[in-house]
Nucleic acid binder design. Structure first.
Length: 423
RNA sequence: GGUGAGGUGGCUGAGUGGUCGAAAGCAGCGCUUUGCUAAAGCGCCGUACCCUUUAAAGGUACCGAGGGUUCGAAUCCCUCCCUCACCGCCA
């Protein structure tokens, strides 16, 4: 959520920054300013009237204590009541409208965020490793997985519909090996604290991290209990500290969490992504940071490095791109995507998206810290995948496949998996 | 799911219709005094919004949330949420 004062006092800059995103968000600033004007005018009127009532009521109290008759003054206050009720309703109405408008408004891209219309304009920041070469035509993970009996889409569809998978045998074991490897890496080597959170969340949590109110149709909802399935660990983990005033010494907070992620992927059904690449449920290890505004930029760089390290250790070729203003996510000020090379796809797959949200989410969840001067200020929040599991598995299977159809695992995974190869 | 207790400022905790934004203590900040590493005294010390703005000063709201009663609600009534305890059920 943007600061209404920022919008009020620097509306031209806000409009320009939002316009860089494309879309129509910047057109709503004038509505918001009108609303803000009405809201404040109403509030001022209301407050003057309340001051009158308060003053007279106190007077009644004092005069009653002396035993005086106050019936005529009481009538005077009673007369204020109707107008007071009306103004109260008006004030609440404008308040709510302003909040609705602000919640629908995306974050301002960071000044350093490259300007561009769409994904075509995303610059490559760096790349690591080289594309592996094969003496044969590399197979897709789907074919490899079928031959090796790693997963079963048909039976998963029988119980849950399309775009669900059932890992089995070595596939299930590989999934578990990867999870353990990722959590160990981030907690032991990168200094994150492991958390294991609930997977279902209340609507307030989703408002906090800005999945709601705008992206309701992407979420699975449990109507009976007003709960949603978390689309990413970002939601439960970042909201862990909602409504808190964190001590300065506790920052930065760094969390790593494994969760399954549930996404309806509305509007992208039948997009022709076979296999593990786009599913309604997938596992992910997420990295979340809560920082001061002063350190968030460097923490984003570090977070991205931490995610990249996964691919380096596994020996997988990847590139890191920065999302331009036209491609960046709703709540983000700055985002790096890490894309791993998948030989069987003959393309790169996004396995991590590392973002800084500035104080956008912190404002929504009222997450603050006390600074050196004892002032309460909003924290900055960041998160990135470290990494998504199924796509990592795709790259791994396709990169390390052998001519005989088996898959030779990288050294680091062998003890986790319990064998050096699959098949 | 049932019964009971409870939710007050950074923390502890008083306050059951009027001058209560709220006692007291702790923590924090400032000053003074004494001075072997600490104590004593005094003062300050919530948040949001509105108005104004260089600043200051003012105003309103906030005692879990939302309604209601009343001239007036932390205090009375209703609904909901959460916490704790015990019982029930259960992996």
């Amino acid at each position: 959520m943007l600061d209404i004062r920022l919008i009020r006092e620097h509306s031209e800059q806000v409009i320009a920054r939002l316009a860089a995103r494309g879309g129509e968000a910047h057109l709503r600033i004038h509505d918001i300013l009108d609303c803000d004007k009405e809201r404040r005018a109403t509030e001022t009127k209301l407050q003057h009237l309340q001051a009158d009532r308060k003053r007279i009521s106190k007077e009644i109290g004092m005069r009653k204590a002396k035993g005086e008759d106050t019936s005529n003054v009481e009538a005077e206050v009673r007369a204020l009541g109707e107008e007071l009720t009306r103004l109260n309703e008006m004030s609440a109405h404008w308040d709510e409208r302003q909040k609705d408008l602000l919640l629908q408004l995306p974050n301002l891209p960071h000044e350093g965020c490259p300007v561009g219309a769409d994904a075509e304009a995303n610059p490559e920041i760096r790349n690591w490793g080289t594309r592996p070469s094969f003496s044969f035509t590399p197979k897709s993970h789907v074919e490899l997985g079928e031959k090796l009996g790693l997963f079963d889409f048909e039976r998963a569809a029988k119980i849950s519909g399309s775009a669900f998978v059932c890992f089995k045998g070595a596939g299930a074991r590989l999934e578990r090996a990867l999870l353990n490897f990722l959590l160990d890496l981030h907690t032991r080597d990168h200094g994150y604290t492991e958390v294991s959170t609930p997977f279902v969340v209340r609507p307030e949590a989703l408002v906090g991290t800005s999945q709601l109110p705008k992206f309701e149709e992407q979420l699975y909802r449990c109507d009976r209990d007003e709960l949603y399935l978390a689309p990413t660990a970002e939601v439960p983990v970042t909201n862990l500290h909602r409504e808190e005033i964190v001590a300065l010494e506790e920052l930065p907070i760094r969390y790593a969490a494994y969760t399954p992620c549930f996404r309806r992927e509305a509007g992208s059904a039948g997009l022709g992504t076979r296999g593990l690449i786009r599913m309604h449920q997938f596992d992910k290890v997420e990295l979340v940071k809560i920082t001061t505004p002063e350190t968030s930029a460097q923490e984003l760089e570090a977070l991205t490095q931490d995610a990249e390290r996964v691919l380096q250790i596994l020996g997988l070729h990847y590139r890191t791109i920065e999302l331009c203003t036209g491609d960046i996510g709703f709540g983000s000020t700055r985002t790096y995507d890490i894309e791993v090379w998948a030989p069987g796809q003959d393309g790169y797959l996004e396995v991590s998206s590392c973002s800084s949200f500035g104080d956008f989410q912190a404002r929504r969840m009222n997450l603050r810290f006390k600074d050196q001067d004892g002032k309460n200020r909003f924290c900055h929040t960041l998160n990135g995948s470290g990494t998504a599991l199924p796509r990592l598995m795709v790259a791994l299977l396709e990169t390390y496949q052998q001519a005989d159809g088996t898959v030779l695992l990288p050294k680091i995974l062998q003890p986790y998996f319990g064998a050096e190869r699959i098949g």
